[in-house]
């Protein structure tokens, strides 16, 4: 099963290496990872999507907690969560297909952020299902290139993840 882990870490050099190294040497699978600063510039938030059974996830969380630079690990899959990812898709588009693509873009509430004679870049944000759906439709026209940010996530409601006191 897929889990989304929110990991608060000290914003120091080498921390990403420590986390990535831990996953690879212990044979844990990372599906994707996104890193960025939090409200506190000294603390970064890693959103790590992983797959594994409950025992494996428990080990991941415990091993992450052992890293000195890791301040807090939360498994967001255990609560209602907003998960989003941004994807840029460069799709093959000529005069005769451009308006069809435009329609798809509108339906998905995506955006066209670049147009050339033979291509368009579409910016789309959403959860996995939405991104996969638009990708599938655009494949019909020929996808030239894709770039994705990796998932970020926040739990719903006013509860926040803070470092341990």
């Amino acid at each position: 099963m897929k889990h989304v882990l929110a990991v608060l870490v000290e914003n120091k050099p080498g921390v990403l290496t420590r986390v990535a190294g831990l996953f690879s040497r212990r044979g844990f699978n990372i599906e994707n990872i996104a890193v960025g600063e939090t409200v506190d510039p000294g603390i970064s938030r890693m959103t790590i999507t992983v797959s594994g059974d409950d025992t494996t996830i428990e080990q991941m969380v415990k091993q992450l907690n052992k890293l000195i630079n890791v301040l807090k690990v939360s498994d967001l899959s255990r609560e209602p969560t907003v998960v989003r990812e941004l994807m840029l898709i460069k799709v093959h588009a000529e005069a005769n297909t451009r308006s069809d693509i435009q329609q798809i873009v509108e339906t998905f509430r995506a955006k066209v952020v670049d147009v050339s004679l033979e291509s368009m870049i579409i910016e789309v944000t959403g959860n996995d299902e939405k991104l996969e759906a638009i990708k599938l439709l655009l494949q019909h026209y020929g996808i030239l290139e894709i770039a994705r940010t990796g998932k970020v996530a926040l739990s719903r409601g006013s509860k926040v993840i803070k470092e341990n006191p």
């Binding site: 050099p13 080498g14 290496t17 420590r18 190294g21 831990l22 040497r25 000195i68």
Partner: peptide
């Protein structure tokens, strides 16, 4: 050496 010993130390530091 901090890279090399990452998996075999409890923690390590490269002083900059």
């Amino acid at each position: 050496i901090t890279g090399i010993t990452l998996p075999i130390t409890k923690h390590n530091y490269l002083i900059q």
